[in-house]
């Protein structure tokens, strides 16, 4: 990271080192100085971001990592209650928390992980498929195109909690509009959010509703960036629409696809507000994803387990880092 080197050499920034000395043996200080002279401008431009992120994210993150090796909970951490100071009394427990989770002893990790993966994969895949379909429909000369585009992007402009609130009202089995409609048609009323299985389908649906606009907009731009000549050439060669899709559209979209899939996987994996807001408190716990579970540990009244929730956080981070590393490597070999 650049943070460590940024501020210190500022004092002697005006002394440029001789360029030629680069190849000769130099002290670390000299090379640092030279590096500073060359790059201080770039560093200065990234400094605001780096400082904010370092202080408000990286520092707490390291602190979370530290907590994950302890047995800290709300009863043994230090307290500064006004004039009263109570020292911390928790201990280091090494890898105990990780062992608890990864060995499956806590009984929650693997079931939650399984559902988290299903949730992430289905949300990302369906959102991508629908987003791509919509983008392709909009990427043609269509009447009322602007209207369609505005309508389809609308869910993005609505804060998530409002969208979810609307769905919750509509899903209500007794007073919701969906059951009003289908009973008018003569179908039996459904308990949309009744069983854990129905709840899972519902949260995926709502998440897709929230996520499609972003996907669609990104892919629409990707489609527009594919040079028309490629399509023309394919048409000349007599390619069917399906062939054109697989030979021109899919490869042409690859750069956008790679990015949006990576981003939405990371976001969906940790997307807990939608589940929580749609289903409320009366659940069996089967619909909790890993993040929800981590929150529960961090906030359960009177027994908040800071170490346990931090460990979950770190494990989630590891899973996602592993995924994105693997994903990017896979992409590189493809190219």
């Amino acid at each position: 990271m650049t943070t460590a080197t940024m501020d210190e050499p500022a004092r002697d920034a005006k002394a440029p080192g001789p360029r030629g000395s680069q190849r000769r043996g130099t002290t670390p200080l000299q090379s640092l100085r030279r590096s500073w002279d060359k790059h201080w401008y770039a560093w200065a431009m990234v400094a605001p971001v780096v400082i904010v992120i370092a202080v408000l994210v990286l520092y707490p993150l390291c602190y979370g990592l530290y907590l994950s090796f302890t047995n800290a909970n709300e009863r043994n951490v230090a307290q500064n209650i006004g004039p009263i100071h109570i020292g911390a009394t928790y201990d280091f427990v090494g890898l105990h928390n990780y062992w608890q989770i990864l060995s499956g002893r806590d009984g929650d990790f693997y079931p939650r992980l399984e559902w988290t993966v299903i949730w992430t994969v289905s949300c990302v895949a369906l959102t991508y498929a629908i987003g791509l379909a919509m983008a392709m429909l909009l990427n043609r000369p269509v009447r009322f195109r602007l209207f369609y585009r505005l309508a389809l992007i609308l869910p993005w402009a609505v804060p998530a909690f409002i969208g979810v609130f609307a769905w919750r009202l509509m899903f209500n089995s007794q007073y919701g509009v969906f059951n009003d409609i289908i009973t008018k048609v003569g179908l039996p009323a459904q308990d949309w959010l009744g069983t854990p299985f129905a709840q899972k389908i519902a949260v995926i649906l709502v998440n897709i509703w929230c996520g499609v606009p972003f996907m669609m907009v990104a892919l629409l731009g990707g489609l527009q960036a594919i040079p028309n000549e490629l399509y023309e050439a394919a048409e000349m060669d007599g390619a069917t629409p399906l062939q054109r899709f697989f030979n021109v559209t899919v490869p042409g979209l690859r750069p956008v696809t790679n990015t949006v899939i990576l981003l939405s996987t990371v976001w969906t994996f940790n997307m807990f507000p939608i589940i929580y807001l749609l289903l409320g408190n009366n659940t069996t716990g089967d619909t909790d994803i890993l993040v929800t579970h981590a929150y529960e540990m961090a906030f359960s009244g009177g027994a908040a387990d800071y170490a346990g929730s931090a460990t979950y956080g770190i494990v989630i981070l590891m899973i996602l880092v592993a995924f994105s590393t693997f994903y990017r490597r896979q992409l590189k070999t493809q190219d």
């Binding site: 060359k38 790059h39 770039a42 990234v46 780096v50 408000l56 994996f269 940790n270 961090a298 994105s324």
Partner: peptide, 26 residues
């Protein structure tokens, strides 16, 4: 500049940790 690669990577990583579990330290 030295650090430009890890910087972008760090940006992505910051999105991966559920910060709200650390709301008390924050």
């Amino acid at each position: 500049f030295p650090g430009h690669r890890p910087l972008m990577w760090t940006f992505l990583v910051t999105q991966m940790f559920p910060m709200a579990v650390l709301i008390v330290p924050l």
